[in-house]
Write a protein that binds this DNA or RNA. Sequence first.
RNA 1: GCUGAUGUAGCUCAGCUGGUAGAGCAACGCAUUCGUAAUGCGUAGGUCGGGGGUUCGAAUCCCUUCAUCAGCACCA
Length: 652
Amino acid sequence: MTNSTDIRLIVTSGLDAHTELVVPQGETVGGVLGRLPHGVQAVALRVDGVVREVGCTIDGNADIAYVMPDEPDGLALMRHSAAHVLAQALVRIYGDVQLGIGPAIEEGFYYDVLLAEPLSSDALASIEEEMQRIIAEDVPIRRRVVSREEIVAHYEARGDALKLELIAGIPEGVELTVYEQGEFFDLCRGQHVACTGRIGAIKLLHTAGAYWRGDSKRPMLQRIYGTAFATPQALADHVAWLEEAKQRDHRKLGRELKWFTFAGEVGQGLPIWLPRGATVRRTMERYIVDKEQSLGYEHVYTPVLGSVALYQQSGHWDHYADNMFPKMDMDNESLVLRPMNCPHHMMVYKSDLRSYRDLPVRIAELGTMHRYEYSGALTGLHRVRAMTLNDAHIFCRPDQIKDECARVISLIQEVYADFGIDAYRFRLSYRDPANTEKYYPDDAMWDTSQAMLREVVEQLGLEYEEAIGEAAFYGPKLDVQIMTALRKEETLSTVQLDFLLPQKFDLTYVDADGVKRRPVVIHRGVISTMERMTAFLLEHFAGALPTWLSPVHVRVIPVSDAFIDDAQRVVDVCTAQHVRAEADVRNEKLGYKIRHAQQERIPYQFVIGARERDNAAVSVRKRGQGEIGSMPMADAIARIADEIARKRDGSW
RNA sequence: GCUGAUGUAGCUCAGCUGGUAGAGCAACGCAUUCGUAAUGCGUAGGUCGGGGGUUCGAAUCCCUUCAUCAGCACCA
């Protein structure tokens, strides 16, 4: 018989789906798991869609599902608990450690701590050992509500100013909870796994500095990064992946493939494009300029220097002076290396009287600019101090905004298809109204422009996410976010609506009624900077870029010295058809040269021996595919030329 | 910029507690004239990131400086 205080639970998905269970009202998640066939494998329950840890009670009828240790929610619980175990280990080993915060993150967890001594990798190893011990002890993790007095007294006794500050930041009246495990407990909102033994496999990865509460004016703590997985195998797979990721690092590939270098003699963050990399860059530049010109963009050249007054007028000086190279006072001017191209393009617009019929005016440039990035921010080609942006500014009437944005978005989509980039997301970046320092203060302008951008994206039916506080100081952005091969998210393309610079530069056009009106500016970058795009492509393709973008399309390999002249003739035919080819005439064996061509990620190899010479043929090898066989030279070259022209690699 | 780590041949790295620098790959030379991911032998290459100090003696210990890496903060 069902008691009136009983509740009915239905497992809706996963293991034991469709199982029904009647339990007393107020039964715990742990109790429910104990009654279900596979409940012991789960780390928590999803109750009506909400994750509940084992100590939670269930107070009414509900749909439930297991939270398994290898799914994202389960991993998050486990990693959060692992962070507590890390803290417990630190207290055991060091005693007087102040604990900041220790959350689960995307691929693991960290804990920010204040410790008298810096942690060496040996120290990390012994902390990890202590963590293993705590996990082996399999102590229960219990949630307990505490009074403010009790918890404050505890942390005062421990001298933990960090925790005391966190507590002080929690409003009166909010319930304070701690999670206890053995002799240790941590102020925490939860949630956690049932006991330390439920934490599968852990590994501490590295330490780093991190500002307390993310504020560069506050002290720096030691952050210890680690990760946890359900099984040792899953952890081993992750560690192996980290190793593989290192092999795709664009700095490593850029050096190996001789695309670019950095020289201390030239300066920090100032890339030197070597011939191979320069060929890739020139290919991208010619491509995008041709494409933009075909779409009504007008390409210009403007100088890399600009007057400080120009940046004061644009407002950039107030926001970014610290990130510009210092000004040069010459004659009666103060000049800086330009950190962006917008003001120069404003002057292009202002060079003529514009009528409503002229708009939209689309001014584009491969704009070289220099920014004083903080030394710690410099990373290969990804963050540099000298860079060239595929930049453009579209000056249009308000009624043209949507159409122009739509055209930019479709350009972005075409370009990504040609570059072989298929996974990307759209992000609307808004201002953070609370951050009055960072954004131009005009609420009406922000409301209008943010709403307008959202409308464009919705009308195009694009999926998007929203990010508060990611806008430029002058307006909202539509950013195109891509996930790099190293699983870092970054912005490649951007479309920005700007009502501010037209005011600042007093831009006008003459409308149909003869009245001067204000145009709107759309800032947009499609292939980003040449530097950043090159870094991205190297990592994304692990150096093996689509044929049309590869620095060398074909390596011609004579079987022996006797065929050097024949190989050279093949190179000449390729070159005449704009197929980038070079011969490997070193005195080495065939297999050796093929190996090298493969390692250099050259898309095609032509092997030339007696059979080929006698038949005007080449023996084709394709990167990643191996030997394809002999075919007439003219056919092979035509086919590759066609792939290059279409920007699509075919299968042979 | 901040915290920590690292810096040895073009590249990847070895060199224990101080005793005077080594390997593989690459380069170059010679032999070989080769059929689809490494032919053999040989040669050359380093004031151990720079500067200062301790010491009879420093790649090794200390100080300082520069650069790089991880992360933080920043990213128009």
